[in-house]
Design a protein around this nucleic acid. Structure first.
Lengths: 214, 214
DNA sequence: CGGCTCACCCTACCAAGGTAGGGTTACAAT
DNA sequence: ATTGTAACCCTACCTTGGTAGGGTGAGCCG
């Protein structure tokens, strides 16, 4: 029996899927890589009798969809390692992926060499989760849980300050970091409060809980 | 500056602590290893100015103590990787350890070579958690990412108030809802702040972002 | 040009959050 | 019987957050 090295890439962005597919072929020695941009197509492409050696799954849609897909994939392909990718650096995402039983997690912006390493680990039956640096934590955005400042009707500066509020910074620190007076920060904060229809910064944070900025 | 490779081992079994300490010295190249068998002694041995390169923590007693200690260690030694060990193979344990923010987890009965590998990973800033067996997976999947008040070392009342803080309630409203004075609420809040090693309620919220209580 | 918004500055004021230092009760452990 | 801890109360004090009501200069638009 010929054991071809095959993979299935699931990502809603065709370009990304193509890019990853190509990378697996050229740098990881895969013989065949299928690329899927629609969850509907996943099951058509999977032949349970000869499952892929690896599944790469983007963590893009509202949590449920990708996690649910992950669960289904695990059930139908019990012996296939699943690598989940995300542009979102949030710890919570990785935790959920971990808890749901993926075999690995990697950030999209990670260097190619790291990617190769992770893939080879998964293929050898290991699990692999990334370290979270402080920078990673800050780089945000996964499509559904992200909100832009302009979507909230905020000015550029207000958006900048909103970001710092969400990190828990007090006005004084925001002022220092932006090299403006604390009073000016307060005025920007007041502007944000009015725009968002809330009474204080704590409500801003709880209102945007689970979402990410910019 | 001379950067010695130092470690702190926390285990209530003296023999185990000695064994692990010796192993770190002989097989992992540590220059100095402190061994503690009593949680009371932990803080005497830790010099925050020159923190250890690694902390090895046994998950021994009833959940509370070790997780609480873990939280405190993270607060005081933000840059030191913490490896939690356990003789208990239950997935839930690892899950909790992961959620509470340890950098790695390993079973005591694991082979020495694995131990070496895990330690070197942690020292290079990575996180490392063990693979899950199929039996363990089932229990893991159903578990949520939650943190209980007692795991944070909080009293019952403090936990109750923490929940309201996370909902964005101001002290006044908390007081009304619990039918106690606002001052008492403030004192509970202060207690929570100290336990969690932060300076104000906003930091509580940002610190627990994404986690659920109770 | 005038009218507009945005970013920035100021003083002054008040409310909310948090600390310090007192104290009382209840209840469990030594 | 004493110690310890949790929950509750108080006054007093300081810091932070937010509002109100002033003002300036830069830039855009009709």
């Amino acid at each position: 029996m010929t054991t071809l090295k095959t993979a299935l890439v699931i990502d809603d962005h065709p370009l990304v899927a193509r890019g990853i597919g190509g990378f697996l072929r050229s740098h990881c020695g895969f013989d065949e890589v299928d690329e899927v941009t629609d969850t509907e197509d996943v099951w058509r492409l999977i032949d349970v009798a000869s499952p892929p050696s690896l599944v790469v799954l983007d963590f893009w849609l509202s949590n449920n969809a990708s996690l649910q897909l992950l669960v289904e994939l695990k059930a139908k392909l019990p012996n296939t390692p699943i690598l989940v990718m995300s542009a979102d650096g949030d710890m919570v995402v990785q935790q959920k992926v971990f808890a749901t039983g993926a075999h690995g997690f990697i950030h999209k912006q990670e260097a190619g060499s790291v990617f190769v390493e992770v893939v080879s680990k998964l293929l050898s039956g290991k699990r692999c989760f990334e370290s979270l640096t402080k920078e990673n934590l800050r780089t945000a955005q996964s499509k559904e849980l992200y909100v832009t400042a302009s979507e909230l009707g905020l000015t550029e500066r207000q958006g900048e300050i909103l970001g710092m509020i969400l990190k828990g910074f007090p006005n004084k620190r925001i002022a220092q970091q932006l090299s403006i007076s604390e009073q000016t920060v307060k005025e920007h904060v007041s502007g944000i409060l009015i725009r968002m229809g809330v009474g204080n910064r704590v409500e801003i944070i709880t209102k945007l809980r689970g979402k990410r900025l910019e």
